[in-house]
Amino acid sequence: MSVYTIVEREALETFLQQYPLGQLLEYQGISSGIENTNYFVTTTSGEFVLTLFEEMGEKELPYFLELMAYLAEHKVPSAHPLADNDGHYLQHFYDKPAALVRRLTGSEILQPKLAQCQALGHSLGHMHTATPGFPLYRANGRGPHWWRQIAKRLQEKLPETDNHLLQEEIRFQGKHQHDNLPRGVIHADLFRDNALFNDDELCGIIDFYYACDDVLLYDVAVTVNDWCIDLETGQLDVARLHIFLDAYQQQRPFTFQERENWSVMLRAAALRFWLSRLKDYHFPRPGELTHTKDPEHFKQILLARRQLPDDCQLPEA
């Protein structure tokens, strides 16, 4: 959610006339995140988030906006997009696709507590059981094909040891097929900065712009690799892990096949985000406000996941 497009007040006032939101009071760029331009916008009708989509094509966006509306209407805590005066979620601003959503209360968590991990596990499990009726489909654009593509692009930028680790892990993942694992709509990026809390209450899950249809267990692994770890070492925090997984399983019990593939999926999730961080670090995009995340953090997590302790396995049903 870096700022790549500078929004002028007069242009924003004109844009907002397409919505029944009253007068613009103030607005401010948001620097956290990576992909899109985002602003907090306050009008006489309330507080909102404006997103200008910097890379996504217009054909992709209905999936995300319709999904956000679907989830909010099915009691998954998330921000409902706003319809303009003609009933459309998607608009254009500065010749780019744009959308407004209601700004949720709460703030992101730096050091998750047990109760917060429990609340998040419950909501992710609920999301995975609520979305089979969602009618749209989107493939995962950052799956194995993307891993290989980015690893090749990075080859000349990385030391030999890192290139060796990447190729070794990509080969390892290629030996595992996941056709027998439950699939559905996943968030695919449920990090600490994409969930908002008031104390222990989960107010909302945000930033669904990596959402897609893929293995549900992969979504669990992505989330665990950020919420249930020691930030210094990358090792899993057993207490947070267990309370998260138990809360999730109350909504959707894990299958035998998922328990067999848990270690593989944790490694896949770590690999994907190490590659993403490496790409952003070595091939940055220009932006007024940017937030580049340290690739070494996910390299450390990947190395830690290559030996999964016995007390970090998925719970029995």
Results as ranks from 00 to 15, higher is better:
residue 143 G to T: 07
residue 121 G to D: 10
residue 85 N to W: 00
residue 96 K to V: 04
residue 160 E to W: 04
residue 175 K to D: 08
residue 101 V to E: 02
residue 132 P to D: 05
residue 74 H to I: 09
residue 95 D to S: 03
residue 163 N to Q: 15
residue 73 E to G: 10
residue 107 S to H: 15
residue 69 A to H: 15
residue 76 V to T: 06
residue 93 F to T: 00
residue 111 Q to T: 10
residue 150 I to D: 01
residue 82 L to D: 07
residue 108 E to A: 08
residue 112 P to R: 00
residue 177 Q to S: 13
residue 152 K to L: 13
residue 140 N to F: 09
residue 164 H to S: 13
residue 91 Q to G: 00
residue 117 C to I: 04
residue 157 K to G: 04
residue 79 A to F: 03
residue 66 E to V: 01
residue 131 T to Q: 01
residue 157 K to R: 08
residue 62 P to S: 07
residue 166 L to A: 08
residue 136 L to V: 03
residue 115 A to H: 00
residue 109 I to T: 11
residue 162 D to L: 15
residue 61 L to C: 09
residue 124 L to F: 14
residue 133 G to N: 10
residue 101 V to F: 02
residue 69 A to E: 13
residue 113 K to Q: 13
residue 96 K to W: 06
residue 159 P to G: 13
residue 142 R to V: 04
residue 152 K to P: 05
residue 172 F to G: 05
residue 127 M to C: 01
residue 154 L to W: 05
residue 120 L to R: 13
residue 101 V to W: 04
residue 106 G to H: 12
residue 87 G to C: 07
residue 169 E to K: 09
residue 85 N to L: 03
residue 105 T to Q: 06
residue 106 G to C: 11
residue 170 I to C: 05
residue 156 E to C: 02
residue 157 K to E: 12
residue 140 N to A: 14
residue 120 L to G: 09
residue 167 Q to W: 14
residue 83 A to F: 06
residue 107 S to L: 14
